[in-house]
């Protein structure tokens, strides 16, 4: 596992799931509503991105200099950033020191509460109701989808497969529950948490339970496919290569 790729996954997949978390969880939405902020995480030799909190929504985007940041946080390397994500370190605030302290300076500050709760749910900690179980699986599905794009772009092995994915949209689905679209364009993968309008290929879990089993490693994709619990159709070379990236996801999202 590459520390650098882990940093990309942490920023754009693990934190990226905040977008869906505040949409799906009322408590999280309530916290997010109270803050309209743009936070930049700049990692030397690693990712550079912005978390945009606006009116109860969250977006995580690659750094865009036309989007003004209220807080600018710097990490001296991917390892440092990964420590921050694990709650074992603090970034260096280059801008918005007081806002930083207020928003994420302690364990009971809003950002820490938000990410802490999301992390617990994704890891299954305190997940004891059907609703929370469903939320846990959905968040894991979105994180997995976002991680595919990061690993397919940044990982040494993953990028071999990522580049071989033919151009177009791949729809990842939990039927009637969750959708993500992986787009390959000009050799780069991107992920959006929305249903593809015209996908060239589709990978669909037939239920939340199946998705949960596969994401958590209790079942493998091939056996799900054999049992009809996972559908793959369309331009199969896209899925063949996507699966190779998918195989690497558990290394980064644990």
């Amino acid at each position: 596992m590459s520390v650098r790729v882990k940093a990309y996954v942490n920023l754009f997949a693990a934190m990226g799931v905040l977008e869906k978390f505040v949409e799906l969880d009322a408590e999280a939405k309530e916290i997010a509503k109270q803050h309209n902020l743009v936070i930049r995480f700049q990692v030397k030799g690693g990712p550079d991105g912005q978390l945009i909190f606006k009116d109860g929504t969250v977006k995580v985007i690659p750094y865009n200099d036309t989007v003004k940041s209220d807080i600018h946080l710097y990490c001296a390397g991917p390892e440092k950033f990964n420590e921050v994500v694990d709650g074992k370190g603090m970034p260096i605030p280059l801008k918005g020191v007081f806002k930083t302290l207020k928003f994420m300076g302690s364990s009971d500050s809003p950002f820490s509460v938000l990410t802490g709760r999301m992390g617990d749910i994704m890891r299954g900690k305190g997940v004891d109701t059907p609703e929370l179980k469903k939320l846990s699986t959905l968040l894991a599905f979105y994180a997995m989808s976002a991680a595919i794009a990061q690993i397919g772009n940044e990982d040494e092995i993953g990028s071999l497969a990522g580049k071989r994915i033919p151009e177009g949209d791949i729809s990842l689905e939990i039927k009637d529950a969750a959708y993500a679209t992986i787009t390959q364009k000009d050799g780069k993968l991107t992920c959006k948490f929305e249903k593809a309008a015209n996908p060239r290929a589709i990978m669909a879990f037939t239920s939340i339970e199946v998705a949960s089993d596969l994401i958590n490693g209790r079942r493998d994709a091939m056996s799900c496919l054999s049992m009809g619990d996972l559908e793959m159709k369309g331009y199969i070379p896209m899925l063949d290569n996507l699966n190779k990236v998918l195989n690497l996801v558990p290394k980064y999202l644990s």
């Binding site: 493998d220 994709a221 091939m222 056996s223 496919l225 054999s226 049992m227 009809g228 559908e231 793959m232 159709k233 199969i236």
Partner: peptide, 28 residues
């Protein structure tokens, strides 16, 4: 039979004769 196979054989039927590599779309 596939349900039985899945319990004792990886992927139930692996390789090119199986639903995945054999591109049996849809498997049904």
């Amino acid at each position: 039979l596939m349900e039985r196979a899945g319990k004792v054989i990886p992927s139930g039927v692996y390789g090119h004769l199986g639903p995945a590599e054999g591109c049996m779309i849809p498997t049904s």
